[in-house]
Structure formats: C-alpha cells, structure tokens
Amino acid sequence: MTTRAEFLERIREQVRMSPGRSPASSARRPQHPAAEAETIRRELVERWPETLEAFRREFEGVAGVFHRTASIDVVPAIVARIAHERQAREVVTWHSAALGADLAPALGACGLDVHPMPAAEPSGGAERERLRTLAARADLGLTGVDLAIAETGTLVLVSGAGRPRSTSLLPPCHIAVFDRTALVESLRQAGVFLEAWHRDGRPPAGGSAINFITGPSRTADIELTLTRGVHGPKEVHAIFVEQPIRG
C-alpha cells in the first residue's frame, strides 16, 4: 500500500521539475469575506427589487414555480393550496427556528399532517429511522433558504440541526420560503458568502452539506428527452416574503 509520505513525495518531485507553462493565478480571494458579504447585503437593500425580478426570471426558466406574498403569515395558505391541488396531506418541515417562524399550527389548521423536524439530534437510531421514513413518505417538504442566486435561479440550503437535507430531497414537491436577506446577484457573490461562512463570518448552520438547488430534479438520459423528478423533487416552489421573516 502507498503511504501518504510516498504519495506526496512523488507529487513534490514532479512539481519541482515542472516549470510553469502558461499564465497561472488562482482567483483573488476576499481579504475579509464577512465584511465584503456585509457590503453586498447593504448594496442590495437598494437594489433588491431588480435582483428579485432577475431571480424570478431565472428560477422560472429552470421550471421553478415562483410565489410572492406580503408576510410569512400568508405562507401556510399558499402551502395548503399547493397541497390541495395535488391532493397531498403529508408535509415535512424544517424546525421553526430554522424556518424563522412556527408555521405548524397554521398548516395543521389547513388540514395538513405536519411533521416538523426536531431542533436537536435524535437520541437513537430508531428515532432517526422514523424521521427519515416520514420524509420519504411525505408529499411536500418545506424549507428555508440561505442564499437565492439571481444569476442562475439557484436556492442555497445549508444543512444542520433542525434543517435536514432530506426535507428538500425526498418529497416529490419542495417548497422553499425566503426573503430579501437571502438574495444575491451572482455566483461570484455567493462565493463571497461561502468564504465568509468558513472564515471570519458566522455560517447559517453547522451541518456538513451545502446544497445548490437549481430547479427540479431532471434527466435527459433516455433519448435526450427531458424528464423531471427522477430522484429528487419533481416540483420546486419558491415563496418570496416581502416583510423580512425574522423581523
């Protein structure tokens, strides 16, 4: 078996004997990403309506369904309507702390079976299995959004306590709720936030997966015929809430 030392030494040797051949430079990283991320946010306080419009265009371009509402209190009614149109009842949601609001009572009042995910790690394997089964059986998954990238119509979700990866993955319909604080214009700006979360800024959550979601799951592997919902959700909805969710 190759040891780490041998492996790296062979690479070192090759690196030493190979001169640079073409222009070489890695991307210029932000010096203080948290400060730069803050600047991006501040500038968007002015420009968010244009950014939101760009997001909507791109998101719809990748077959996402866009909704807009005044406040988080209206969200349960929208979710219920989506559910009723699909004759669906079972909803798994992120924990209220991760969503920024406790929507379970209102969703329940609309006749849905709501299963909020716990804020803390399940105590045992059996409980973990039960929660996963709930997500696998659910018709709808309701999540928050950590970044919404206008350039590509992308939702970025960070995993962590109370915000399982399966909520946006296993149910056939994913509904994501966000406000203007999640909006960024470009992949480049999203990169600044990623740098910030890993260096001098605070990440939205402490999980080990960050997922960029750009529309519903799709494949074209059979005769290049575009088909949605192959493994992940067949539908993705994004509900934009005008009043910032966390007040």
């Binding site: 790690e121 306590a161 997966a209 997922n211 960029f212 750009t214 519903p216 992940g232």
Partner: peptide, 24 residues
C-alpha cells in the same frame, strides 16, 4: 456540458455528519 447555467444540484460535502444533523 449541457448548456445549463448551473446543473440542478451542486453539493458541497464537508466530511461526516455533524452534531445535531439528522442525515449524512
């Protein structure tokens, strides 16, 4: 590759699941 602006899923995976996580 496919002419998409971004593929549907870009997953950034950072080691095993962490405290508090349901999956991973």
């Amino acid at each position: 590759a496919t002419g998409q602006k971004l593929s549907v899923y870009t997953s950034l995976v950072q080691g095993p699941r962490r405290a508090g996580e349901l999956e991973g």
